[in-house]
Design a protein around this nucleic acid. Structure first.
Length: 584
DNA sequence: GCCGTTTTCGGCCCGACTGTTTTCAGTCG
């Protein structure tokens, strides 16, 4: 059982517990455990097989470790089976609808016998929902809309798609004279690879007109709610956007709070409570009993909140970059000082791109020119090898012809160095799709898998291991092969591959294309911890895609990477010396 | 169900908005 599947089971237990009215802290324990499992870069089944103690993981205690072991060893979870005897498992699907939580899901089942989304849709269409106590016409309509939306698109938005949708909305909001400051917060600011919705924070003295301006944005399909400080709309793209309007003195506290993540904020607030403080989106306050009763603003003395630095300083921490705010050790690290994270300015070159020689849209000259304009010292031309016939992959003879054209291009310029490279296919048996003699003529050897994606895991692992053991290989490109929201990663043992990559001095690629971002953040973190070098490149198939480098850098920041962890932050001479160490 | 520079028991983050409501539960982030 893979971690994702396991996490899903634990999360489902949490939802069913909630529906059955269990202790809410027990519910949260399952939610927390699910997140830990989902985030963990190494399959828990492998850790168990290796005799690891799962209770060392955050939020996993003795009981939870037992549940996980049971699920992995038997494929079933007794605690889940018992819950399924009390309530239908399909109720977890109802809770995914906006406006439907555990209480209403239970009510729908008990009063109407509705257990699935299909049954719910039928009941709502027949007008039977609005007659239930605690429901009404609006809730019924909202449920129908929610089901329709779920049918249209269940997935989260890729970060690059979100960028496209957010920019014009922010421009729209900025045009209102009452808007003092504006920031996009939430997972968007943390640069998560996908976002479920968008949180926008606005500082304005008079919120009413700004909220009005927000809901009147031309691409709003419907307004879910619009109060004095909070509003929610759904855009015609299906993207949900939340707007929060706060006064200037709360700017930092609000930005901190709305940036999240939830787990990060919970830990931060606990830390505040332990120091006799209270943190909310309005600021940092001295805790006082008087504030317990929903008093706004809180009565305790206000200690700060105008800046994010205020908030962190109040609990003895340095400011934490948004990309790190996932409760993965950043709060503990911020007591001492945090890593100096990579930026796009640190990148000295791009080490994967395609040209018209295979499936790219632009010539070598055009790609090199665009790289030089970005200020790079070097770039590698990495067309496909011959096995990928549909891309026009190059054989040894075509590759030598390409080298001649590269020499001609380079003869005309001294501002950037072009590296001879190829994205060589790893064949079924792990051998490479190019002869050693020709490989010896390359400056940079990239290998990757594009075929036979569904080999049995052990065989897939052996195939990849054999390829990276080849003495000339520098980089394993898009190591897991996933396409976000479209294709799962290949089934293989990443942990073993990382250890071998360390041993054989092979770098792993963090592919910057926002549909790949492969490695994912936690996997790149693991690579860093094991001392495996990372390459960040765009895999550009046209000059415009060279811009995508920023997404790779953002993902790297989420993995705590510093310039020293990334091969292509090195200046040209150091890079060449590094690459030259590997010889046939 | 987890966790521990007050604790191995008794805690566990904070606030807004809506709908269906005569004062608030449920949901959401």
């Amino acid at each position: 059982m893979e971690n994702g599947e396991l996490a899903r089971l634990l999360a489902d237990v949490g939802v069913l517990l909630e529906i059955t009215g269990a202790n809410p802290f027990r519910v949260r324990a399952y939610e927390n455990a699910a997140r830990t499992v989902d985030d963990h870069p190494v399959p828990l089944k492998d850790m168990l097989a290796g005799g690891a103690d799962l209770t060392a993981l955050p939020g996993i205690g003795k009981d939870m470790a037992g549940h996980i072991r049971e699920a992995i060893e038997t494929g079933r979870l007794t605690v889940l089976e018992e819950l399924k005897r009390k309530v239908p498992y399909t109720l977890v699907g109802l809770v995914r609808l906006p406006g439907v939580g555990p209480k209403r899901a239970r009510k729908l089942w008990e009063a109407l016998g509705v257990a699935t989304l299909e049954e719910l849709e039928v009941a709502a269409a027949a007008g039977r929902i609005e007659q239930l106590e605690g429901f009404g016409k609006k809730t019924q309509a909202r449920i129908l809309e929610g089901i329709a939306t779920l049918k249209r698109r269940g997935d989260r938005f890729g970060i690059a798609d979100a960028d496209q949708l957010v920019a014009p909305l922010v421009a729209h909001l900025r045009r209102h004279p009452g808007v003092d400051r504006i920031e996009v917060a939430g997972s968007y600011r943390r640069r998560l690879e996908t976002v479920g919705d968008i949180d926008i924070l606005v500082i304005a003295a008079d919120p009413g007109p700004v909220m009005q301006h927000f809901t009147s944005y031309g691409r709003v399909r419907r307004t879910e709610m619009a109060g004095p400080t909070r509003g929610t709309v759904v855009l015609d793209s299906g993207l949900q956007v939340d707007l929060r309007i706060l006064p200037p003195e709360s700017y930092g506290a609000a930005l901190q709070y709305f940036t999240g993540s939830k787990a990060h904020n919970v830990k931060l607030r606990k830390r505040a409570v332990a120091r006799g403080l209270s943190i909310s989106e309005y600021g940092v306050f001295e805790a006082s009993e008087a504030t317990a009763e929903a008093e706004r603003p809180p009565a305790g003395r206000r200690l700060g909140g105008a800046t994010e630095e205020d908030v962190y300083a109040a609990v003895g921490l340095h400011w934490i970059p948004p990309e790190l705010r996932e409760d993965r050790g950043e709060i503990e690290a911020a007591e001492r000082g945090l890593p100096k994270l990579l930026t796009t300015d640190d990148m000295r070159g791009d080490l994967q791109m395609h040209t018209t020689w295979s499936d790219g849209k632009h010539s070598i000259h055009q790609m090199v020119d665009a790289c030089a304009k970005r200020g790079y010292q070097y770039c590698a031309i990495t067309d496909h090898s011959k096995t990928l016939a549909m891309t026009g992959g190059l054989d040894a003879q075509a590759l030598r012809e390409q080298w001649r054209e590269m020499d001609e291009v380079m003869a005309r310029r001294s501002d950037i160095r072009l590296l001879r490279s190829l994205e060589i296919d790893i064949l079924r048996d792990g051998s490479l799709d190019l002869d050693d003699e020709t490989i010896a003529g390359l400056d940079l050897v990239l290998v990757s898998i594009h075929t036979l994606l569904d080999l049995p895991p052990a065989q897939q692992t052996r195939r990849i291991l054999k390829a990276i053991e080849h003495p000339a290989v520098h980089v394993l490109a898009h190591p897991t092969g996933r396409l976000i929201n479209r294709r799962e990663p290949y089934a293989f043992d990443l942990d073993e591959v990382l250890h071998s990559a360390k041993q054989h001095d092979v770098a792993l690629e963090l592919n910057a294309h926002p549909q790949r971002l492969d490695l994912r953040d936690t996997q790149a973190m693991l690579a860093r911890e094991l001392g495996v070098r990372i390459v960040i490149d765009t895999d550009a198939h046209q000059v415009q895609e060279l811009e995508l480098m920023r997404y790779g850098v953002e993902q790297a920041r989420r993995a705590w990477l510093e310039p020293k962890h990334v091969l292509n932050t090195q200046p040209l001479t150091k890079l060449l010396r590094q690459l030259g160490k590997k010889k046939l």
